[in-house]
């Protein structure tokens, strides 16, 4: 986990509420992406959350704060960390909304509307815009389009692309 913090350039401070929140949601999103960090998440009053991670954050505060570890990320983990940083940018609200949506969509196998309803139920204090943005980030990070998805999309948008090319010719 510390190696991920380092890759993300996340300078964790145990005294900062937002940093503890960011740590929780980073772990949850990485676990949802299929990276086993040993911190499985379940739903608590704070949304997807790992009590085991909390225990370790407090037990090994110095290591987490100084990013002290001999572990190195493998290429897959490095790629996931890079995308996580690029897509969410260590922003607590987006991470929280994204992790909550991802948890319900993937772990609880809810359909997109039900996952959205659960996000709104647990996080009613966030605006519609924040929720929409967080969900869009979660989809970008967690749901990689398959070859079939791309072909379907191409078929769906093809008619519009052809029409727009035709209009350019006139």
């Amino acid at each position: 986990m510390i190696a991920f913090f380092r890759e993300l350039d996340f300078h964790f401070n145990i005294g900062a509420f937002d940093d503890r929140l960011i740590a929780q949601k980073l772990v949850c999103l990485l676990e949802l992406r299929g990276i086993d960090l040993g911190y499985p998440c379940s739903v608590y009053v704070r949304g997807p959350y790992s009590p085991d991670l909390t225990l370790d954050l407090y037990a090994f505060t110095r290591e987490f704060e100084t990013l002290e570890t001999s572990s190195r990320l493998n290429p897959t983990e490095k790629e996931a960390a890079g995308e996580l940083g690029r897509i969410f940018g260590l922003k607590p609200v987006l991470l929280e909304v994204g992790a909550t949506y991802g948890y319900y969509a993937i772990r609880q196998e809810c359909d997109p509307l039900e996952a959205l309803r659960q996000v709104k139920r647990l996080k009613p204090f966030y605006s519609e815009a924040q929720i929409a943005l967080g969900i869009s980030k979660a989809k970008e990070f967690l749901f990689q389009p398959t070859k079939r998805d791309r072909e379907t999309l191409k078929k769906e948008t093809g008619i519009w692309q052809r029409a727009s090319l035709q209009s350019l010719e006139h």
């Binding site: 608590y44 959350y49 009590p51 225990l55 139920r121 204090f125």
Partner: peptide
């Protein structure tokens, strides 16, 4: 029960109100 699971991390008033 809710706060025991979170230990020293705790939860904000607004999180408790929404979730419970």
């Amino acid at each position: 029960a809710s706060l025991a699971a979170l230990g020293p991390d705790g939860a904000t008033y607004r999180e408790l109100r929404a979730a419970l």
